[in-house]
Every structure is written in structure tokens, then in C-alpha cells.
């Protein structure tokens, strides 16, 4: 399906992929009683979180991410993965994402998907702030001619 005004959008794939993400988070919640928050699980998996699930669980979830991705490419062919082509952007972006998600106790998955659907006040505020900061940052980059 093509959205006429937005030729690049993938609404159907987005919705189906989103449902898969939601079911995955539901499996974590109802199966293991845990939040499927990637920043927290990643930090736990590499030993950078003082609390959280047993490290084996965190590692299994994090290793599952690329395995699931490979399965999709196996069945549906290669997918686009267009990263910034300069290392300064990647390093500054990575530092801010790593530091910010840990300081703010969550990212797009933990606050965005799990917390918002729980109607957590903290998650709704965190998600509003990182969304707003994301929009503002890209708008600034566009004004500054960086895009």
C-alpha cells in the first residue's frame, strides 16, 4: 500500500512489524514478568546495570534481536540500513543515546512501547521529551544545512 502524500512510507509493514514488537514485549511481560526495554537489557547484558533481570536473560534477549533480523532478511530479502556516513555523527549520537537512555531509565521500547501502553506518567513524559528533542534536533540540522 502507498500513502499518496508520503511515497516512502510503509504503513502496512510498519503496522505488522509494530504488532510483532508489541507481541514480543507482551511475551516478556506475561512470560517473564519483565519490561522489554532494550537500553536496560543491553546495559544489563554487558554488565553496566546494577539491577535488572539475570544477565543470561538479558543476553538472550539482546542476542535474539539480530537473529530475528537475519530471519526476516532470509525470508523477505535484504532490507535498507542507511547509517550516517561520517563517524563523528555516529560517535556523538551513540554517546548521547547511551548516556541519555540510562540516565532517563529507558528508550523507545521501555518508555515508548511498554511504559506508554501502561499509562505510566514517567514514560509518557520521557517519551514526549525524547520525541520533542528528536524533532527539534532534526529541524535544527535542516536549518543548519546538515541534512
Amino acid at each position: 500500500m502507498i500513502l499518496l502524500s508520503f511515497p516512502d512510507a510503509m504503513p502496512v509493514e510498519g503496522l505488522i512489524g509494530g504488532l510483532m514488537i508489541g507481541v514480543a514485549a507482551a511475551v516478556m511481560l506475561l512470560g517473564l514478568g519483565r519490561i522489554a526495554g532494550v537500553s536496560g537489557l543491553a546495559a544489563r547484558a554487558i554488565g553496566l546495570a546494577g539491577s535488572g533481570p539475570p544477565r543470561g536473560l538479558a543476553m538472550a534477549f539482546i542476542i535474539g534481536l539480530p537473529l530475528g533480523a537475519l530471519l526476516v532478511t532470509l525470508f523477505f530479502g535484504p532490507v535498507e540500513s542507511r547509517f550516517a556516513d561520517n563517524w563523528v555523527t555516529l560517535i556523538i549520537g551513540g554517546l548521547l543515546v547511551g548516556f541519555g537512555t540510562r540516565l532517563g531509565s529507558g528508550c523507545t521500547s521501555g518508555h515508548g512501547v511498554c511504559g506508554m501502553s501502561r499509562l505510566s506518567r514517567r514514560s509518557i513524559i520521557a517519551t514526549s521529551l525524547f520525541m520533542t528533542a528528536g524533532f527539534a534536533t532534526v529541524a535544527f540540522m535542516r536549518i543548519a544545512g546538515l541534512l
Binding site: E13, I16, G17, A24, A36, G64, V79, F83
Partner: peptide, 25 residues
């Protein structure tokens, strides 16, 4: 528990990939 976490991670990664969210652009 490990198997459930691996399954959840796998499905999560598959969803990210199928939805195009693994494309930073």
C-alpha cells in the same frame, strides 16, 4: 526462561526489521 527471552528478542528484532525501523534514514 532463557528460551522465552531469546524468542521475545528474536520477535522484537524481526518486527524492527520488517517495519523498516532498522533503517536510520
Amino acid at each position: 526462561q532463557i528460551a522465552i527471552a531469546l524468542l521475545a528478542g528474536g520477535l522484537f528484532g524481526a518486527g524492527l526489521t520488517y517495519s523498516g525501523m532498522v533503517d536510520p534514514a
